[in-house]
Design a protein around this nucleic acid. Structure first.
Lengths: 337, 337
DNA sequence: GATGCTCTTGGGAGCGCTCCCAGACGGAGC
DNA sequence: GCTCCGTCTGGGAGCGCTCCCAAGAGCATC
């Protein structure tokens, strides 16, 4: 590099126009004559001009940055198919914009404090958050900082208990319908003793999936897990203990379903002949399990894209007609039910 | 918000000092009298002053941003335990610094072009890259842009063929030793007909794991996969076809090992009695498979932290004694071998 | 030819910060 | 008392950009 990078002034000089005109071209203003625009574009191309982001941000008072905050302790982070899909969806939608995606993983309360301080207008224009625990203070804090926010997963009890998280735009799968779909399918196939391994009841996904399931299948046989494979195995063992005659299980996540299948097979039950199993996620891994896992599919990539769309709308100042998006689930039949 | 945010001028006025002195305090210069420092700190605290990042970046010509580029097409992205661990390690190490982490996922060649243009001094101070495919042009491009770069995974053939990627700092697991460890263990247990499901040969991890394995176990029975579960199943089927009498398999990734176990069980082989299986990753999921998967553990979180350390050293202008870090692997015995 | 309009243009001002220079201050040495 | 030197300080300059105002150009109308 013999010379320092060109500035907009260099571009303007080369194009034979003023700084203002060059700036207008760069920013796509329509108030520029075709001749001037062409000259500026040519100069930009020849010089390899790239606008200085810091200078632009200084005057526009925007950062062109969006934070993706994943607030979830421990190993669950990213090891579940759920996260992977959402992040891919967000990333691909964001790739179409000028915005940059800043990743923040919050696993401890110290990191949460740091993130809370960081998530201000100073650093980002908006926030996407994957945090479904009811007691997470971060969403309210981001809101208090005056930042646009979109959640993944409906905040639990948002409509009643906590005014500060009510009305926060969110994207969520239709978890209750998913639970109903699973229960209905099992009933239709003549299953009569249907158990459920529910998710954590401090997350709306855990609550809603169980609720939907119970609406159709009744509410007798339930054990609780934390969405992890290990917890699914433990819950399955407990269920077999309580009701050895059960002939179907609905697990509120695919990993829990894998854990349950492992325990069922160890106990000598055939799947699906003796016990039908349905998971929740519709994750790719389910195609290769033995037997392939029938599961309530939630379109995670689409959810990530929707989150991005809602945030972009807020950034543009639009008032979207429906700031809270529920995407459909569907039962993906493979072989375990 | 009744007033706009305080600037350093506000702080200086309130502290009764000049702008320069206030700036020196903020930036931790020692050339400030204790009295002035105390006054400035008090004013900062009272006003809740936070330096404007854009203004600072404009003059310092740094961005305080680091990009994490994950260059990998398709579903493999994030669904494998490998990625999750690295990202967690990077994220936790980065949380201790002033730097922001940008996430950029590159899945198509259009996205690669965009990333190549974006990864300049203009936008980031340095780059961490997860890309092990030999033909990926991105590392060389980043280097050409004059940016500090740390790779995860040794570039294939870097030492000979491609001067432009030679000497790029990287962090990698000791894949060859890992392969040897697996082979040696199987031989020690009296296995005599040992097959391998190798990874892609356009990635150094795929090459080195196979190479190490062959040094100890010989090089007869090999099929190739792409690290995915499905490819592992396919390879296993081929191996059984070629050598029904095989009594052990070393798969170069845990997902391939899971696929292999599924096929083995379907073929009526008992694991580990008839066929011992060893994977590579030591992923948490292996604890819950049936049987639990014995696997060559690679410390992914540590690798992520090391990558961060190497990049920080480059940013600080240090010449690290050893810019290329190989971390140890170890055989994690569970039950499949 | 003067007037009024729209479209387009150039460039001054200023965003908030760091860098750096010149100067104030105070103590030591003659 | 004077000089010298090191420490500390204030504030001018300027980073590269967008915003905005005033003015020029071009055209139709009176």
């Amino acid at each position: 590099m013999t010379k320092s990078r060109p500035t907009i002034e260099t571009v303007a000089a080369r194009a034979g126009v003023g700084r203002g005109t060059a700036s207008r071209v760069v920013n796509g203003s329509s108030q520029v004559s075709p001749a001037a625009r062409a000259a500026v574009l040519k100069a930009i191309d020849e010089l390899g001009y790239v606008p200085n982001r810091a200078a632009r941000n200084l005057v526009t008072r925007r950062t062109d940055c969006v934070a993706l905050v994943i607030s979830e302790p421990g190993e669950r982070l990213f090891t579940e198919p759920y996260f992977a899909g959402i992040v891919r969806g967000i990333s691909s939608a964001m790739a179409q914009t000028q915005l940059q995606l800043w990743l923040s993983m919050v696993q401890s309360s110290a990191e949460r404090d740091r993130a809370g301080r960081f998530l201000s207008r100073e650093h980002v224009d908006g926030v996407l958050m994957l945090s479904q625990h009811a007691d997470d203070p971060l969403p309210a804090q981001v809101r208090a900082n005056g930042l646009p926010l979109v959640l993944c997963g409906q905040p639990l009890g948002g409509a009643d208990d906590r005014p500060e998280v009510r009305d926060i735009p969110f994207v969520d799968a239709d978890n209750a319908t998913g639970g109903r779909q699973a229960a209905q399918y099992l009933l239709d196939r003549g299953r009569r003793r249907i158990a459920s391994i529910a998710g954590p009841q401090d997350m709306s996904a855990g609550v809603a999936r169980l609720q939907g399931f119970r609406q159709v299948a009744g509410d007798e046989l339930v054990e609780y897990g934390d969405f992890s494979e290990e917890s699914g195995a433990k819950a399955m063992a407990a269920l077999l203990d309580r009701a050895p005659e059960l002939d179907a299980v609905f697990a509120a996540s695919d990993p829990m379903a894998f854990g349950a299948m492992r325990v069922l097979k160890a106990a000598g039950r055939r799947i699906p002949e003796d016990v039908a199993v349905i998971g929740f996620d519709g994750s790719p891994g389910g195609r290769h399990s033995d037997p392939p896992l029938t599961s309530v599919f939630q379109p995670t990539e689409e959810m990530g894209r929707e989150m991005t769309r809602l945030l972009l709308a807020q950034l543009a100042g639009d008032q979207p007609a429906e700031p809270q998006v529920i995407v459909e689930t569907r039962l993906e039949l493979r072989g375990s039910a």
